[in-house]
């Protein structure tokens, strides 16, 4: 079976670990357990008859305590860039990280996840900004809590990687 390395990138506490837990194990935890270093999970997916093993690199959220380690991105086939829709600054941070990741791993397929979409009340991203962004990249609104959009986001990335 083919193996594809997928890295999850984004600021701290945007929901990277939660999205993997939802996608791989169908679970969600309200509590916040920050990730140190790297946590790797695997999941087999089948899209249009083609089976692939996704090796998911859940990287720690970059902040002033931990900087992104360039070597972790080596050989990545795809990126999931995660943004917390209730904290607008995490979008700027994500775009910055994406630019740096591209320098390291090249222009590999990527999908941006606007996570915590269940928290509509606290949503901080403006529609206009998202629409503009959607013209230049794949955007999926997700909720690790409700499961909304999670499968779709991973599938979109697999599809994009297949097209390569």
């Amino acid at each position: 079976m083919k193996r594809k390395k997928v890295c999850l990138l984004g600021a701290f506490a945007v929901g990277k670990t939660s999205l993997v837990a939802r996608f791989v194990h169908s679970i969600f935890d309200e509590r916040y357990h920050t990730t140190i270093g790297v946590k790797i999970d695997k999941k087999d997916v089948t899209l249009r008859g083609v089976s692939t093993t996704l090796v998911l690199w859940d990287l720690y959220g970059e902040d002033k305590f931990q900087r992104l380690e360039a070597s972790y991105l080596r050989g990545a086939h795809g990126f999931l860039i995660v943004v917390d829709g209730t904290r607008a600054w995490t979008l700027d941070h994500a775009l910055e990280m994406l630019a740096r990741a591209k320098e390291i791993a090249g222009d590999v397929p990527h999908v941006m996840l606007l996570n915590k979409h269940d928290l509509a009340d606290g949503w901080e991203l403006s529609e206009e900004r998202c629409e503009l962004l959607a013209t230049s990249m794949d955007l999926v609104r997700t909720s690790a809590k409700s499961g909304e959009g999670v499968e779709a986001a991973f599938e979109r990335l697999v599809e994009r990687m297949e097209q390569r």
Partner: peptide, 17 residues
């Protein structure tokens, strides 16, 4: 131990946001 320290710092960051 490292998780505990980082956890505190980041939880505080989240509360600040």
């Amino acid at each position: 131990e490292r998780v505990a320290v980082l956890q505190k710092a980041r939880s505080a960051g989240l509360a600040f946001d």
